[in-house]
C-alpha cells in the first residue's frame, strides 16, 4: 500500500492553467498557473481578501472558473476541511454524525451502521479524539473542532487533503498540534494543500509555499519564497525576514520601526 503511494509520488494531481475567477465583475483570482503533485505538502499564503479561499474553492469545484482550466486527476478523492469559522456550531449533530456525512452519496440508510461506527472510531482514534464521538459539536475545544472536520475529510480516504485556514482562530498550542498532525499525515503518504495567513507559525514549516495575491507571486521552498521583495509584493507592506533556527522568520517592518522609535 505504502509502496504504491510512493511509487506514484510526483505525478500531477491538480493542474491549474490560466485560471481566473470573478466575484460580480471584479476578478478575485487572475491567471493562475499551479501544479500540485502527489505526495506534496503545499501552503498558499496571502493577506485576507487575496483570493486564496476562492482559488481553493475553484480547485475543489464549488467555485466556477471564469477563464482557464483546472485539470484534476481522474478518480481523485478530495478531502476538504472548511474554515472552522464557517461552521454552524449550533447545528444539532454529534461528532460521529459529522464524520459519517461524507458517505451521503453512496449510502441512503439513515442510521449509522455498526461497520461505519467502527470505521469512525478508527479515524477518530488516529486523530486522538475517540472519546468525543458522541458529543454535540459545540461541546468541543478549538483543537478538537478542527480535528473533527479533519476526521470527516479522512473518512472518505482521500488522495489529497485540502484545508482552508486550518489554524485561524486557534491558540498556539493547538496550532502546534495541528501542524504536527498534518506533518504525520503527510509522512504517511497523503498529499496536503492548505491556505494560511500565518507566515511564521505555519507557512515557514512547510516544504513548499506559494505567495498569493490574486495570482501566484512566488512559488518554492520557504527559504526561497519568504523574502522581503516577495512579501512586500504579496502583502503590500514592507517586511523584514530574519533567520531563526535555520528557518526564515518574518517580521512586520512597520511595527519594528515603531518599536525602534520608542527607544
Amino acid at each position: 500500500m505504502r509502496q504504491s503511494i510512493l511509487s506514484k509520488n510526483g505525478s500531477p494531481l491538480i493542474v491549474c492553467e490560466h485560471v481566473s475567477c470573478t466575484y460580480g465583475n471584479a476578478p478575485v483570482v487572475n491567471d493562475v498557473y499551479l501544479k500540485i503533485n502527489r505526495g506534496e505538502f503545499v501552503g498558499i499564503v496571502g493577506p485576507s481578501g487575496s483570493g486564496k479561499t476562492t482559488l481553493l474553492k475553484a480547485i475543489i469545484g464549488s467555485q466556477p472558473v471564469a477563464h482557464g482550466s483546472i485539470t484534476i486527476e481522474p478518480h481523485l478523492t478530495i478531502g476538504y476541511v472548511p474554515q472552522v469559522e464557517t461552521v454552524d456550531w449550533y447545528f444539532p449533530v454529534t461528532v460521529e454524525e459529522v464524520v459519517v456525512m461524507t458517505r451521503a452519496k453512496t449510502k441512503w440508510w439513515p442510521r449509522i451502521t455498526l461497520q461505519e461506527r467502527t470505521e469512525v472510531r478508527e479515524v477518530l482514534e488516529k486523530l486522538g479524539i475517540a472519546d468525543v464521538a458522541n458529543r454535540h459539536i459545540r461541546e468541543l475545544s478549538g483543537g478538537q473542532q478542527q480535528r473533527v472536520f479533519l476526521a470527516r475529510a479522512m473518512f472518505c480516504q482521500p488522495d489529497i487533503l485540502v484545508l482552508d485556514e486550518p489554524t485561524s482562530g486557534v491558540d498556539v498550542r493547538t496550532r502546534h498540534e495541528i501542524l504536527h498532525l498534518l506533518a504525520d499525515l503527510h509522512q504517511d503518504g497523503l498529499t496536503i494543500l492548505l491556505t494560511t495567513h500565518d507566515l511564521n507559525g505555519l507557512a515557514a514549516h512547510l516544504p513548499r509555499v506559494i505567495c498569493f495575491k490574486k495570482t501566484v507571486i512566488a512559488d518554492g521552498s520557504p527559504r526561497d519564497v519568504l523574502t522581503p521583495q516577495v512579501l512586500e509584493a504579496t502583502y503590500g507592506a514592507p517586511m523584514e525576514v530574519l533567520e531563526h533556527g535555520g528557518m526564515p522568520l518574518v517580521v512586520d517592518h512597520g511595527r519594528m520601526t515603531m518599536r525602534g522609535e520608542g527607544k
Binding site: I60, S62, I78, Y80, P82, V87, V98, M101, R152
Partner: peptide, 8 residues
C-alpha cells in the same frame, strides 16, 4: 449542515 462540502 455544510452545503459546500456536500457539493464537493
Amino acid at each position: 449542515f455544510d452545503r459546500d462540502v456536500a457539493q464537493v
